[in-house]
């Protein structure tokens, strides 16, 4: 008999609306989902589908209007180091070097300098930025900045990693490279990941499971377990078949 999977993070009946004078938008409408430990979950949705709002609720940056979000069975009440976030616009501290950025979380926790630099170095090496420890963000390209963002979030050892369209601002080729790298880091340092994107290829490449969100109101439309062994090939026939299926299922937001 299969062992019951361990649920790491879950959303129960989460709803969130934005209210203006003219109208109310149900950005999230009664969303319930469960993420298993060490699962790589991808949330896929078009432009205004509320997927970033969902991620921000899971991060605790904003609070849902209804429903709860539980980490290891406990309701979350705000942001915290147990849920690390990788932002689309990098959110690096421009006055800090790469090393100081990556070790930021540990610094906040009060870890001593040599220990946190040691841990930070490990992750800087993991994302391939050796030699750039003393560089400032403005000296780096977009892809490199996001690698710092990844390293920073990962180095803090969160229980869950929340990634908000982290490669959205990058060009197609850098994006493919970053997807590959994210996967290889995840293989080496397994963690629960919730990854938000609007790119179907990216979703299928990375995810163990892909959840498709509908647009306004934001609801879970469908779920697709991806059974292709990793690492996957973008042009593999099974990949393309999955892509066709999911693509036809997603909505077009004009």
């Amino acid at each position: 008999m299969a062992q019951r999977p361990n649920i790491k993070i879950e959303c129960r009946n989460v709803s969130k609306s934005f209210v203006t004078e003219q109208y109310t938008i149900n950005v999230l409408d009664d969303i319930s989902l469960q993420v298993e430990e060490n699962e790589f979950l991808v949330v896929l949705g078009p432009g205004q589908s509320g997927k970033t709002t969902l991620l921000n609720c899971m991060a605790g940056i904003i609070m849902p209007d209804a429903g709860q979000i539980l980490l290891d069975g406990k309701t979350i009440t705000g942001p915290g180091p147990d849920r690390g976030v990788v932002f689309q616009q990098y959110a690096l501290f421009p006055w800090k070097t790469v090393m100081d950025n990556v070790s930021f979380g540990l610094y906040i926790k009060g870890v001593g300098k040599s220990k946190r630099n040691e841990v930070a170095q490990k992750y800087i090496d993991l994302v391939g930025l050796q030699g750039f420890e003393t560089s400032y963000p403005h000296q780096l390209s977009g892809g490199m900045k996001q690698r710092v963002g990844l390293a920073r979030a990962w180095a803090n050892g969160p229980e869950v990693l929340l990634m908000d369209e982290p490669f959205g601002a990058l060009d197609a080729q850098t994006r493919y490279a970053m997807e590959k790298e994210t996967l290889s880091i995840w293989e080496k340092d397994k963690r629960t990941v919730v990854f938000v994107t609007n790119n179907v290829e990216e979703a299928i490449y990375l995810g163990d499971r892909v959840i498709v969100l509908s647009c306004m109101p934001g609801r879970i439309k469908s779920q697709y377990p991806i059974d292709i062994p990793k690492p996957r090939e973008y042009t593999d026939p099974r990949f393309l078949e999955m892509r066709r299926k999911i693509s036809d299922d997603t909505e077009l937001s004009l």
Partner: peptide, 10 residues
């Protein structure tokens, strides 16, 4: 470049 993929196809 910056638009979502279904929109791109469209």
């Amino acid at each position: 470049g910056q638009l979502d993929i279904k929109l791109r196809y469209y």
